[in-house]
Amino acid sequence: MNTIAIDPAHAEPREFLCREEGHAHNGTLLGFWLYLMSDCFIFAALFACNAVLGNSYAGGPSAHDVFDLHGLAVNTALLLVSSVTFGFAMLEMARERKRAMLGWLAVSGVLAAVFVGLEIHEFASMIAEGAGPGRSAFLSSFFTLVGTHGLHVTVGVLWLIVLMVQLGKHGLTEANRRRLMCLSMFWHFLDLVWVGVFSYVYLVGVLR
């Protein structure tokens, strides 16, 4: 009965014909990348809205009237520097220097929080001037696109705070590294979307 199992000819491991690559060791990063790509579609739809409705002022203020390019330059600089400091944090993570990493993460978080604060201030002053999202199709599309980006940055800052608490408590565990890599991609992605926002919505908006 058991002779087949004992027979040394059958004891060697069976070979399966599965020569292609298996699953990635850590599929989370690929999955998160796919999420970011789907987020691209949200922003693409909102950019398309802005492109179509950007001239529909309905007799209200135009892009030239409401946009403050000096404030925009400050916001752009904040987000770009924050992206680089987050990169520095990832380098410190690779070197296992937790304290320096937390320092760079805090710098990135503060810069992004100031960015959100300035954007809320900009929105509030626009609404106070009567250029709120209900004034014209142009302003509706502007508030939706820039507001969606600002909401992403806000969520990123909250995520960063939670992750810094986790890192402080549990240190550089494998799970925390993975989370930090996902947040890093999210952070750089938001800076990338902002390039489109300041170039197209603001600078081209002022020109056309």
Partner: peptide, 18 residues
């Protein structure tokens, strides 16, 4: 030119940051 530079900058972000 502004849109062209934006495309170049997006590529730069993709390569050096992402």
């Amino acid at each position: 030119i502004v849109l062209g530079l934006a495309v170049v900058q997006i590529v730069v972000h993709m390569i050096y940051f992402l």
